[in-house]
């Protein structure tokens, strides 16, 4: 295969071959690696060693090389509430804290947040610049925390989660009321009338409720229902109000408009079906199914304030 005498015959200026010859005359040049390439290669080795020294790297015994690199960050101590400045060795966790500091110190965000914090709801709503900030920050907050139930656009789910874009508010649609709803949560409750009223009385009440929003025409049945609604037997007016327009402090729905939060009336085709869905809710009441969680403690005060204004501007702002 190889012929060791070949190399000896090499003339000056010719490229050296590897010294092998196959099939009699097939030889291979032995070109040296380009100098620049070789130095880059050595460079990567040096880089690798420096990397091991600077960053956490090799395992050693029960521990590991921790690296000499450091990161600065500031945190607020949860017990003393004092800001604590710290220099710590580089790792992804200390780097995160430094990243969070950088975000918190973002000048534009910081000034806008201070403005919003100091302003009243009315001032925020009237200030286009602050509202721009609310819309951009609120969108993310709403998407992460509220959209799962209320939908990404705040449209809600009929029967389960209220629509936030319409003009109907169970617990009040002013910024202050929305803020209160966010802070302490809400628990919708309506007593069950199934045991209190007779089946025909339930029918009458359902019929009357539908006349309030012009879904049904007044009839003898609805007149009887009206008496129950406004009388001591049903006492519906305690919570829904004498005008049936709802009482926000009770979370009672406005029954005179075409917006239905729980009973899915609009999609029912016949009057009979509409009556049936209303009757179901009068019979069973609402208990333990309409719960808005309290966000205090889960979100910070600034975020809750931003969200209150964001939800307010989604639509139907009162």
């Amino acid at each position: 295969m190889s012929d060791p005498t070949q190399n000896a015959q090499q003339k000056p200026g010719e490229v050296q071959t590897t010294g092998h010859a196959w099939d009699g005359d097939l030889q291979e040049y032995n070109n040296p690696l380009p100098r620049w390439w070789l130095w880059c290669f050595y460079g990567t080795m040096v880089f690798g060693v420096l990397y091991w020294i600077y960053f956490p790297s090799w395992p050693v015994g029960g521990s590991w090389l921790k690296g000499v690199g450091t990161v600065d960050y500031t945190i607020t101590d949860k017990k003393t509430h004092q800001a604590k400045e710290q220099e710590y060795r580089w790792n992804t966790r200390s780097l995160l804290l430094s990243d969070l500091n950088e975000a918190a110190n973002n000048e534009k965000r910081k000034t806008m947040l201070a403005q919003v914090r100091a302003a009243s709801f009315d001032q925020i709503v009237k200030d286009p610049k602050m509202m721009e900030f609310v819309r951009s920050v609120g969108k993310g907050l709403f998407g992460d925390n509220c959209a799962a139930c209320h939908g990404s656009g705040g449209q809600g789910v009929v029967g389960m989660y209220p629509n936030l874009t319409d003009n109907d508010w169970l617990w009040g649609g002013a910024t202050g009321q929305i803020h209160e709803t966010l802070v302490q949560g809400r628990k919708g409750f309506m007593p069950a009338f199934g045991a209190v009223l007779k089946p025909e009385q339930l029918d009458d009440v359902a019929e009357y409720v539908l006349t309030l929003s012009n879904e049904a025409k007044p009839s003898e049945a609805s007149a009887r229902g009206k008496e129950i609604f406004h009388g001591p037997v049903g006492g519906c007016y305690y919570c829904h109000g004498a005008d049936a327009k709802g009482v926000p402090s009770q979370g009672a729905a406005n029954l005179t408009d075409k917006i239905w939060a729980i009973a899915d009336v609009p999609t029912q085709k016949t009057l009979q079906d509409k009556k049936a869905v209303v009757k179901t809710f009068v019979t069973k009441g609402v208990n333990n199914t309409r719960i808005m969680p309290a966000w205090k403690g889960r979100l910070n005060d600034d975020d809750i304030k931003l969200l209150a204004v964001y939800v307010h501007q989604l639509g139907g702002a009162q």
Partner: peptide, 13 residues
């Protein structure tokens, strides 16, 4: 996590 400071777990990496 409310009982731990934000940098409590930094030392484990």
């Amino acid at each position: 996590f409310s009982q731990y400071n934000d940098d409590e777990f930094v030392k484990f990496r």
